[in-house]
């Protein structure tokens, strides 16, 4: 599988990152098999979080067995020192390892959160302390929030080394600043910050729970995913062709094999094809009157 430099971290990540949340829905034996399958495809970057149910615990055994082969990202939603310090130790403990390669501030959404995180006694203090103590190697951020807020975070966190954000044809087709993740991508490229793409496989939101109860959804993702081999391949190729360093696999274990397959076969995507995908979904919720042309 193709690898790319993850910004200036020194890490060469496979173009696919395994979203280990998928392990949460498997028994331990199935989780072990899935990690073996993922490693068989050459994937060397895994991502996990303490909020993904049992995923950390289920990843543990195989992670320890193959520790050298896996660059592990983990995250915290804590915004203050105490909580973040505790979460780092807890994740290390649950995973059963000494060092997390990449530790990310997870799900940044509001300016005030950024204030708290970067203030004295904020989560960053704990993360930096952990870094100095060798518990983590690199510092990252994840957000599906306002791109301007992410840019702001890049400005305010000097030692930020990676950013994880959404990128897919729907997002790429929108010009409003609230969807301008391309600006984030550009900034990261110019500053040597690693980029991880999420929501690459999102087709849309789930129908309202009145129409479709949460328990009746066919996939564990928090959005409705594309789910045919062709569509998955196309979405993977699109995301990887945008220039992201790596694309995170979707949360549902049923989709992982197809995504591994797509990533193994990745050979780029020409621009006329990328535009075609953007154009195809641009009309989904277009305010413009029906039109004949593209």
């Amino acid at each position: 599988m193709e690898t790319r430099a993850l910004g200036d971290t020194g890490q060469e990540s496979t173009v696919l990152t395994f979203g280990s949340i998928a392990l949460n829905w498997l028994e331990q034996e199935g989780a072990n098999q899935m990690v073996e399958l993922v490693l068989d495809h050459g994937v060397n970057h895994f991502d996990v979080a303490p909020t993904y149910g049992d995923a950390e615990l289920k990843l543990g055994p195989k992670l320890r067995q193959y520790r050298e082969d896996i660059f592990l990202g983990c995250k915290t939603q804590e915004r203050e020192y105490e909580g973040a310090a505790r979460k780092i130790d807890r994740s290390l403990d649950r995973l059963g390892i000494d060092t997390i390669d990449l530790y990310q501030i997870h799900g940044l959404e509001y300016e005030e959160e950024l204030d708290t995180i970067t203030a004295d006694g904020g989560a960053l203090d704990a993360i930096r302390e952990a870094k100095a103590a060798g518990k983590i190697d690199h510092i990252g951020l994840t957000s599906h929030g306002d791109p301007d807020l992410i840019l702001d975070a890049i400005d305010r966190i000097d030692d930020l080394e990676t950013v994880m954000f959404p990128l897919n044809p729907v997002v790429a087709g929108k010009d409003d600043s609230e969807y301008d993740y391309e600006a984030v991508l550009e900034r990261c490229e110019s500053e040597g910050i690693g980029t991880l793409g999420i929501k690459a496989f999102a087709k849309g939101s789930w129908p309202s729970t009145d129409e479709l109860a949460e328990a009746d959804r066919p996939y564990a993702n928090w959005y409705e995913p594309v789910d045919t081999p062709e569509a998955i391949r196309e979405r993977f190729d699109f995301a990887a062709a945008q220039g992201l360093d790596t694309v995170v696999s979707p949360g549902d274990p049923k989709l992982v094999k197809m995504v591994l397959d797509a990533a193994s076969r990745f050979e780029g995507m020409d621009e006329a094809r990328q535009r075609s995908l953007i154009e195809e979904v641009r009309h989904d919720d277009s305010p413009v009157p029906e039109q004949l042309h593209h």
Partner: peptide
């Protein structure tokens, strides 16, 4: 080449 292939969506077909 701007588009390859051209996506003729339901909206386009309805407009025609």
């Amino acid at each position: 080449t701007l588009l390859d292939p051209v996506p003729w969506t339901e909206a386009h077909l309805n407009a025609h």
